[in-house]
Amino acid sequence: MIRRLFTSRESILLYVFAAMFIAFSVKVEGFFDWFSLLEISRYWVVVGMLAVPMTFIIATSGIDLSVGSIVAMSGIILGLLYSDAQVPIVVACLAAILAGALAGAFNGGVSSYLGIPPLVVTLATMALFRGLAFGLSQARSVSDFPDAFLWLSQGDAFQIPTGAGGSAYFPVPLFALATVIAVGWFLMRHSWVGRFTECLGENETAAHFAAIPVRRLKLGLYTACGAVCGIASIFNTALYSTAKADAATGMELEAIACVVVGGTRISGGRGSVLGTLLGLLIIGILRYGLKMAGMRSQHVVIIVGALLIVTAVLNERMASSGRHAWGEAK
């Protein structure tokens, strides 16, 4: 038990996070400031939401490259319905979620029922959904949303005293992120959805033979992923007070990086939502810390990409050495 505290993937990630946090706090002036840290966390919400269903999809040994485009498309639908069609904002939000779910169902249906690898399907729909966002909006951005809507991403829930008379605010969107993560964690660890997902990623043939409805499960996961993209689009739009077609560009990379840094293997079979949360924190802190240290955001992308490759390699290596350890113990 105690050994697991030191060697489990999640605890290692926690130590890495703690070490980075301390190092940045010591080395980078202005890093350790509750106010800015809480403010910056608003920007992690959208990526964090996408990373949760992505954990499931990668655990099946699939991938979804279209998540960023679905966020943009759903956001545009939300914006156009609200500003042009004048529908109530709540209905527009529901429509955005529905649009996301339909887009996800399309990905899942084409890849699992026609047998085309999800990586090419979602590569194509990445362009397709982005194209829809541009086409529907004609590259026009929509703003002037009601304050109550913007509050979702920009609002403060309560005040936190930070000592020395200062105070910070707890951002409202973190509740939404926490909910998505909690649901994802529950489904992965404590429900048969997660168990079947991991079985399917480990051995798809055996999953068929064990009466797991493989195709329907995949369809469901991609649909859920799309729906979460729809939800994320609400928070993304509220955060920037704008719906535009080039929103969330490149966000698929960040979401996938969170998942992979969090220890979920690209070859499937295991998924850890807790790991994904830690991956999100590590990448978030790294981005913020490097920015505070004066690095430009375009250069930070290089580091995120490199981190993705390095951890993907580590995950595969650790998995195979883990097998050996058990084999020798026997």
């Binding site: 991938i63 990586l119 990086a257 992308v301 290089i302 990409g305 993705l308 390699v313």
Partner: peptide
């Protein structure tokens, strides 16, 4: 590393 080229080149895309 025996990881699918999609991951390597996805990272390469931004790098």
């Amino acid at each position: 590393a025996r990881i699918h080229p999609i991951i390597v080149t996805l990272a390469g895309l931004s790098i």
